[in-house]
């Protein structure tokens, strides 16, 4: 079994590697993850400490300058990476899990269960997702947990629809009938037979969702709805907004960081899509 999985990963890597842009995206992602993991250790400056004069240009002491309160922007960037990645990944995982369960049940069983679950999904899809996220955070206290939950709540419906489509198409196939004919239970068929077939497109969507989640989190903290105890990229843009004309880099630096991160994740997602798509395998 382990040999099979390992060889599967190796061949996946071979297909992924053919897309140069995706490899570049993966390299950038690796840098960002490393920066988030070790940056605050190698550059131990508290991002909330007012250390210098406000709004200074990048210098030897402050490599990326200071913000309107004299806080070190580089320190903010490194600490903010942790928050962005944590919220982005946690929210996507939660949304993927919920979406998979809802979509699998709806697609596999059909009937009234399908109708109820999918109308609920449609209900969530009709509400503009960012507005809903703002609403949820505004109702509860803004904390990392609530922000993550709010992003997950607005993200799961797209996974649910995709998962449902996959499960609908697979539950009608002969191999599922064959599994039932040999006495497998519904849970076993869903988890062990259909899920491995349905997973590739879901993995792609989930990876792209990390990018959207990071953007949503930035948007929330830009609006001042972030966790007040934690520095984040969106919050830094918000702080620089008032001095945009005199100190443009204050907003531009976290802004470009978000742009690069989201772009890198999208490139990786695109590469995964090509690598996991069975139609591409024969090439």
């Amino acid at each position: 079994m382990t040999v099979q999985v390992a060889s599967g990963v190796v061949s996946l890597w071979h297909r992924f590697r053919r897309n140069r842009a995706a490899v570049l995206g993966l390299a950038i992602m690796a840098l960002i993850v490393l920066a988030a993991a070790f940056g605050p250790l190698l550059y131990p400056v508290d991002p909330f400490d007012m250390l210098g004069r406000p709004s200074t240009v990048p210098s030897q002491r402050f490599p990326l300058g200071t913000d309107v309160s004299g806080r070190d922007i580089l320190a903010g960037l490194l600490h903010g990476a942790r928050v962005s990645l944590l919220i982005g990944i946690a929210a996507s995982l939660a949304a993927t899990l919920v979406g998979l369960v809802v979509g699998a049940l709806a697609g596999y069983f059909g009937g009234w269960l399908d109708a109820v679950l999918m109308r609920t999904t449609d209900f969530f899809l009709t509400i503009p997702s960012f507005v809903l996220a703002v609403l949820i955070v505004a109702i509860f206290q803004p904390s990392v947990l609530i922000i993550t939950a709010s992003i997950a709540v607005v993200s799961w419906p797209s996974v649910a629809r995709l998962a449902r489509a996959e499960f609908v198409s697979h539950q009608g196939r002969d191999y599922v009938d064959a599994c039932r004919a040999m006495g497998m239970s519904n849970a076993e068929i869903m988890l062990r037979q259909i899920l491995p077939n349905a997973l590739p497109p879901v993995i792609v969507i989930a990876s792209l969702m990390v990018a959207t989640a990071i953007l949503t989190e930035s948007g929330l903290s830009f609006l001042g709805l972030g966790d007040p105890n934690i520095i984040s990229w969106g919050y830094m843009i918000g702080v620089g907004r008032t001095v945009l004309r005199t100190a443009w880099w204050m907003s531009a630096i976290p802004g470009v960081t978000i742009l690069i991160t989201v772009l890198a994740i999208n490139l990786v997602g695109e590469g995964l899509n090509e690598a996991l798509n069975p139609r591409m395998r024969q090439r």
Binding site: R173, D174, Y175, D177, A178, R180, A181, M182, M184, N197
Partner: peptide
């Protein structure tokens, strides 16, 4: 199912999990 009554299907490609 499977234990006392077995079943084989029309298209063996479709009836095996890829």
């Amino acid at each position: 199912r499977g234990a006392r009554i077995g079943m084989i299907f029309q298209d063996p490609m479709m009836a095996l999990n890829p």
